[in-house]
């Protein structure tokens, strides 16, 4: 893939792809979640109840919640 996706300039210093022990774990986590999923939906940081444009809803969740860690990929 690196041969296909070339940049159009040469960097002054060598850029190494970030690799650490977390990569494997994160890769597994993504693969596992993609395969397992949940029984049904959960939408992080949104209201508990949405009744349409005219509905009386409340409880929109704040921007930074625990499940937000799963939003990255």
């Amino acid at each position: 893939m690196s041969k296909l996706l070339r940049g159009n300039f040469t960097p002054k210093s060598e850029v190494a792809a970030k690799k650490n022990e977390d990569d494997l774990e994160a890769k597994f986590e993504r693969a596992a979640l993609a395969r397992l999923g949940g029984s049904i939906g959960y939408v992080s940081r949104k209201k508990f109840l949405w009744s349409g444009e005219t509905g009386e809803d409340k409880n929109e969740l704040p921007a930074a919640g625990r499940a937000a860690q799963y939003d990255h990929d």
Partner: peptide, 14 residues
């Protein structure tokens, strides 16, 4: 995860 769940069950749910 939300997207994964949607991919997995969204079509059947609809």
């Amino acid at each position: 995860m939300e997207r994964y769940t949607l991919d997995r069950v969204g079509g059947l749910a609809l």
